[in-house]
Design a protein around this nucleic acid. Structure first.
Length: 173
DNA sequence: ACGATGATGAAC
DNA sequence: TTCATCATCGTA
């Protein structure tokens, strides 16, 4: 059973959406072929009070996509080299998103976007088959005890927020 | 352990 | 317009 996730799934609180993305499939259509990757690691970025969230300083040109309603991509460049892939969550005008940090067989968000040919041209696009990049539920059941929560990576600058357990991983079998 | 590499936002 | 900063990776 395959079901494409639609805006109803994404238009909820980011902390509800993030762990549910584990075990779902990121699907990339490229040159008429579909490639699916099982999501194993995500991080939540939640609104203006989260100092690790780009939008905590306010609405800017870069973060504009984060303020859209849930279900669109937010992609941006980091360290001058790598594009980070995020899916926006929640209602319009509330900035929150989930960073897709790892999928099976590919480690690291920088390699992920490079290997499956994602770049900033997806920024602001909808997560749907028409855009060539979306997420599917393939019927896998993931329960709370399959999931581990830890602090986020690479956000030491965020003070207190750096300690929040907003990173979710599938435990190894 | 560290350099590559460039957009971003804030300060001057 | 200049500067420090950065949600990373590959080579050492």
């Amino acid at each position: 059973m395959k079901r494409v996730l639609t805006s109803g799934f994404y238009k909820r609180h980011v902390l509800e959406v993030a762990p549910e993305l584990l075990g779902k499939y990121l699907v990339r259509k490229y040159r008429r072929k579909e490639h699916a990757y099982r999501i194993t690691e995500v991080e939540a970025y939640d609104g203006p009070d989260d100092k690790a969230c780009h939008a905590h300083k306010g609405r800017t040109k870069r973060t504009e996509a984060m303020f859209a309603e849930g279900g669109i991509w937010y992609v941006y460049l980091v360290y001058g080299m790598y594009d980070m892939l995020n899916i926006v969550t929640g209602e319009k005008d509330y900035p929150a998103a989930v960073l897709i940090r790892g999928v099976e067989e590919i480690s690291g968000p920088g390699r992920l976007s490079r290997d499956i040919r994602i770049s900033r041209h997806f920024n602001g696009k909808k997560a749907a088959p028409e855009s060539g990049l979306w997420i599917e539920d393939r019927g896998e059941k993931v329960t709370k005890k399959d999931i581990q929560a830890t602090p986020r990576i690479g956000v030491a600058y965020a003070g207190e927020c750096a300690k929040w357990k907003y990173r979710f991983l599938l435990k190894a079998n």
